[in-house]
Design a protein around this nucleic acid. Structure first.
Length: 517
RNA sequence: GGCAGCGUAGCUCAGUGGUAGAGCAGGGGAAUCAUAAUCCCUUGGUCGGGGGUUCAAAUCCCUCCGCUGCUACCA
């Protein structure tokens, strides 16, 4: 399988100055599910995440903490590495922008861009607010006393001019538009694509890509007075991780261009405009897709430190369980849209869909097999039309999921799986194996076999979203590690009658509210 | 302001010209294998307001109201 089909996907690198919250967890979760799905489907997957560790804010935070920036980032980036364990992410690499491999990569890319004539030295001038650490456009400012300009934030601005290197972004407008046109799925969802195209059509200015006002960053080759613009630094991580500047052979040849950059909607432009332009200028291929997902609100309110409603991923996992949390985040909201997290919705999903629909289906079937079939995979007789119908729907799921996961429609993929869960529950009621037990034990065995085989399909297919629970179900079907890939779906990997099965155990407990004190 | 999108059952949403749909919530019933889980039936909407095109509009056009996103160098 290795060497044939590859899939390279990335999360953004997270800014170490932030504390990990549900939003970070969500982005990486989506990638993790995709990565697991593709691996099970036989792809050679590389799944990358990491931390963005340069910039003025980090420099200041380190200063405030009284430590040097490197020691500071060593400490805070651990928060994000810990998140990997909390959420059971299966990333293959964790990159940090302070690593030597990345510094070398960024400087190589810079040099390449200079050689290509796309970077030149100019000067950046504008109205700067020292208090806000930001430049403002003339149209944003109002006149204050003594001819001062006042920013929207109320801060006084002064005219500042500093030398800066520029990237010739303006030269790439037409080529970017041609690229979007030739690759209609480069930006998803479609609404976001339209925004980006409109933005680029509106005209592009050259981009200031160096700074001289602080030091914590990667020095510009040959001009140590400048450090590189954080986005040029940060975006390059995606090629650093596959070995850039080594582009011949190795991981770069194997994995680039990336199949997917998953990003939050707030950083779409950097990935969908600047990044392809940088890459094309360097003679490299742009990624195949950038997907911009939405944001979460909490109980209907925007997440914010001042409201005190920021949810740490650990809290969710401790309160509801890891698989439950992973399921909820991908099931509750059409992927790409904004969504709301609420306790009530979470409990509804856990109890109705996981415990009652899926968990109880597994339990009722395995329990009947345990009691009535000698705790072995039952021996089926001839299949009826109803049997074939259910098996057919279970076997058709893979095709559906490939299509939905292929466009990052996680909610639709799960919806399709639960449609079969519903079919299976209806089938149990219609076939009533508990009645067949007395009238036609052979038919009962067939019905239970069909159900066990259906559950096998469901559990194999829910592995990417709920690895632990799915694994426990597969354990209960006595399926070993080599019997859990998508290549085993369908008749080829069918359960073997007579195989001994362990005693069934519940996999999805109901969420019971703590009694009020 | 400009551009784009949205407004459909209590809630979340699907439905782009031909007798209004799903899930959840609410009501009734069946069954009893199972985590009192499951299954069946059912209440419920002048499809944001108004106007127009059409034999026929949630679906096309105009307009009004409300909401959201984008409108570059803070990440």
């Amino acid at each position: 399988m290795a060497g044939s089909k590859t899939y390279y996907l990335t999360t953004p690198i997270y800014y170490v100055n932030d504390v990990p919250h549900i939003g970070h967890a969500y982005t990486t979760l989506a990638c993790d599910v995709l990565a697991r799905f593709m691996r099970l489907d036989g792809y050679d997957v590389k799944f990358l995440t990491g931390t963005d560790e340069h910039g003025q804010k980090v420099e200041k935070s380190a200063q405030a903490a009284g430590v040097d920036p490197q020691a500071f980032t060593d400490r805070v980036s651990q928060n994000f590495r810990d998140l990997v364990g909390v959420m059971d992410y299966s990333n293959d690499d964790f990159i940090r922008t302070t690593e030597p491999r990345h510094v070398a990569s960024v400087q190589a890319l810079w040099t390449r861009l200079v050689e290509a004539g796309d970077i030149y030295l100019g000067s950046y001038a504008g109205w700067y607010s020292v208090r806000d650490e930001a430049f403002y456009g003339t149209d944003e400012l109002r006149d204050g006393p003594n001819g001062k300009k006042i920013a929207p934030t109320g801060a006084e601005c002064e005219w500042v001019e500093e030398p800066s290197y520029f990237f010739r972004l303006s030269a790439w407008q037409d080529r970017l538009l041609a690229f979007y046109d030739a690759n209609p799925d480069f930006i998803l969802p479609p609404g976001k694509r339209n925004e980006v195209v409109a933005f680029v059509k509106g005209g592009l200015q050259d981009l200031s890509v160096s700074r001289t006002t602080f030091k914590w960053g990667i020095p510009v080759p040959g001009d140590d007075a400048h450090i590189m613009y954080v986005w040029l630094d940060a975006l390059t991580n995606y090629i650093t991780a596959v070995g850039y500047p080594q582009t011949e052979g190795g991981e770069f040849a194997k994995y680039w261009p990336a199949d997917l950059h998953m990003v939050g909607k707030d950083i779409l432009r950097f990935h969908a405009v600047y990044w392809p332009a940088f890459l094309m200028a360097a003679g490299l291929q742009p990624p195949k897709r950038v997907f911009a997902h939405g944001w979460w609100t909490i109980e209907g309110q925007k997440m914010s430190k001042s409201l005190g409603n920021v949810i740490a991923p650990e809290t969710l996992v401790k309160t509801y369980g890891l698989d439950q949390t992973r399921y909820f985040l991908l099931r509750e909201v059409p992927f790409g849209n904004d969504g709301d997290f609420s306790h009530a919705a979470m409990v509804r999903r856990i109890n109705s869909e996981l415990a009652n629909d899926y968990g109880n289906l597994v339990q009722r079937v395995l329990s009947m097999i345990g009691k009535n079939c000698g705790a072995q995979v039952p021996q089926p007789g001839p299949f009826t039309e109803a049997d074939e119908a259910l098996l057919g729907r279970a076997r058709a799921l893979l095709g559906t999921l490939r299509a939905e996961i292929g466009v990052q429609a996680f909610h639709k993929a799960l919806d399709a799986v639960w449609a079969v869960v519903g079919d299976a529950n209806r089938y149990v009621d219609e076939q009533a194996p508990w009645a067949l037990k007395k009238t036609d034990p052979a038919r009962m065995a067939t019905v239970l076999y069909v159900l066990a085989e259906t559950i096998r399909h469901l559990a194999i297919l829910t592995q990417p979203v709920m690895p632990a629970a799915s694994s426990r179900i597969l354990d209960q079907l006595a399926l070993g590690p080599d019997a859990r890939g998508f290549d085993r779906l369908g008749q080829g990997g069918a359960l073997v009658p007579g195989t001994a099965l362990p005693a069934p155990q519940g996999v999805f407990p109901r969420y019971v509210e703590e009694p009020k004190t």
